[in-house]
Design a binder for these strands. Structure first.
Lengths: 144, 144
DNA sequence: TTATAAAAAGACATAGAGGTCTTTTTATAT
DNA sequence: ATATAAAAAGACCTCTATGTCTTTTTATAA
């Protein structure tokens, strides 16, 4: 469903959040190692997330990635939107250019149901809630 | 969610089925025109579907694409499987290589719910049921 | 039995996602 | 001030999805 880039983005943000709770600011090399993603490419993805203001960064010695306002929840939707683009949840599942309630494709209603359940999920789940699950040992990032 | 190739495949099969009901065997050029897809590429996609035995074809004058056993329902799942590959519905939504009930990623259960509702839908819907919807004017292929 | 109309096949082209390498900038510690 | 450690930036590379062009094969009609 989601591209690899988006998966790296979510895993990276979760890792950063967990490390921030320990008062650490991880760099992209450490992040890539811990979330099992390609190092340089992860750096690029984090650059994009920083530009989209989903995370902050500091250059120089002692620098790294961190959340300016850790209490401000970041939904998975925000991450998906930033990486995959705004139309991700609005395209016709049948591939028609014109498809709406008045002129529906034969999948219209059933696809809408699936799409909405995905949409609901990514709006409920946040980087923080995933990180908490990992901290409570109810889930894993595979390296933590 | 689905790749363009899969969308073309489904639309093409629906169109073929509708034409078969009129005792016609459309060729890939006609199909491409009617489902609004690139002509040559649609030919390739149909070759693959024929190899996967989801549709039959005849060369030569009067040839074209058709269903050998039109009463044998083809679920969208079969088409997706043939084009996107067997793992499409089993990959971890978080991107982890190892992810199962014993060692779940933090999205495991919620993603499973979404994935299953998609899976259920594509197993219920068939080329035939979509075609019937179009014939009953309850939906459109945009050119029919 | 030959011309024709169709799919099949194969070689090639393009765009975008995913990924790497090198250089530049910047903050900090010494 | 200077060395160092970090992200940022930019130029590239690779692979896959998507798409095109040309040639070959095959069934049918004339």
């Amino acid at each position: 469903m989601l591209g690899k880039t988006t998966e790296y983005a979510i895993r990276a943000l979760v890792y950063i959040y967990i490390q921030n709770m320990e008062r650490e600011r991880p760099g992209f090399k450490e992040i890539a190692k811990m979330i099992d993603s390609p190092e340089q490419f992860t750096g690029k993805v984090l650059q994009n997330l920083a530009r989209a203001e989903l995370v902050s960064s500091m250059k120089g010695r002692g620098g790294g990635f961190f959340f300016n306002e850790p209490t401000n929840p970041i939904t998975l939707f925000k991450v998906i939107e930033a990486i995959e683009g705004k139309e991700y949840f609005s395209k016709c599942g049948f591939g028609l250019k014109r498809c709406d309630a008045n002129n529906p494709c034969p999948l219209h209603d059933d696809y809408a149901h699936v799409r909405d359940s995905f949409f609901k999920m990514v709006n409920e789940k946040t980087i923080q809630s995933l990180a908490n699950k990992i901290n409570k040992r109810e889930a894993t990032l595979n390296r933590l």
